[in-house]
Design a protein around this nucleic acid. Structure first.
Lengths: 175, 175
DNA sequence: GCATATCGTTAACATAGGTTAAAAAATGAC
DNA sequence: GTCATTTTTTAACCTATGTTAACGATATGC
């Protein structure tokens, strides 16, 4: 069973307007979300109010605060960059179903593996690539990114300031 | 069932000398390892031969190349920094057991959640903290790190050069 | 449609970290 | 213990990115 099928069968659908929060840093939220349509930004705010973009999410992407799934509070906030629809399913319910349904249990394991691969790629990029290389990767993986995400959010996703991203974009290329 | 219990019951134990590789980037390896005793370094080599340290591992830590578990080749190498003993268990075997044993299936899910939390912390640190802050965090989380890992390896784990780490260490503090 | 806030660009300057190289210190092999 | 190797430190210089600020271009709210 795919995660999409699991959502179709057991999840609910929620609609959010642009700029609406799906959940907020510091709050509880034990659901897993699958983006049906739209764009979202997962971000941290530090003590000084500085923002860091953890992920940018589009149709088909899955997200949850893994710490919140385990009873802690969300370590980040999730906000819509466009009018957005998501499938929502509580982790408790998934575990319930998994207890009696091997196919669902395997789909949870599969989902977690996919999550792990994604995190590992992000870790790899942050550890080994320059900001410019990360920008190229982002463009390659999401060609319409400029149409959907502001440069501010893109820069904070790349781990640099908007000013630095503007410089990289306009850098005279030696190609 | 804890992962440790799973290893005790179904895993094997392997011993490695300091500097021995447990597995190598580009090779196949579909096992999960739990460190019984010792210290290891997981690292990437890029095309220029430059090294990046993905993780430093000690007693009780778990590691596998998640991509290799799914049939791909290892995206990194694992080498011993001390004489080391590990528990080893193939992911295929774990899945087999999980099929008929709910408790094991849940322990796999638990393990993957722990893995996710760890990756999320690392991502957070790389995205939001300065090299100096990451060094402080590392010292706090592993106080005996200097006794067990060279500054070279520590620096490459932090995402900076050994020269930069030496500077940070000896920086006149304004405390 | 106007007023306002946000966004992207540019410039000047500050700082963290990279690079290279050389010497000092520590470690390991015999 | 001595010699060779590896690790750490230090210095000089370079580059990428941060910071602040100003300005024009867009987008948004009313």
């Amino acid at each position: 069973m795919t995660f999409q099928a699991l959502m179709d069968e057991h999840g609910s659908i929620e609609h959010f307007k642009k700029r609406a929060h799906v959940f907020s840093q510091g709050a509880k939220s034990n659901s897993i979300y699958l983006v049906k349509q739209g764009a979202l930004k997962a971000y941290y705010l530090d003590l000084d109010g500085k923002e860091y973009v953890k992920s940018l999410l589009f149709t088909g992407n899955t997200i949850a605060s893994i710490k919140a799934l385990q009873g802690d509070v969300c370590s980040f906030s999730l906000i819509c960059l466009e009018d957005t629809s998501v499938y929502k399913l509580s982790y408790d319910k998934i575990k319930d179903i998994a207890l009696s349904n091997l196919s669902v249990a395997n789909s949870v394991i599969d989902l977690l593996m996919q999550f792990g691969i994604k995190k590992e790629r992000r870790e790899f990029e942050l550890l080994t690539l320059s900001a410019e290389q990360r920008y190229q990767q982002l463009l390659a993986s999401t060609p319409d990114i400029h149409q959907r995400v502001t440069q501010n959010d893109m820069a904070r996703y790349l781990g640099i300031t908007p000013v630095a991203l503007s410089r990289i974009k306009h850098k005279p290329s030696i190609t």
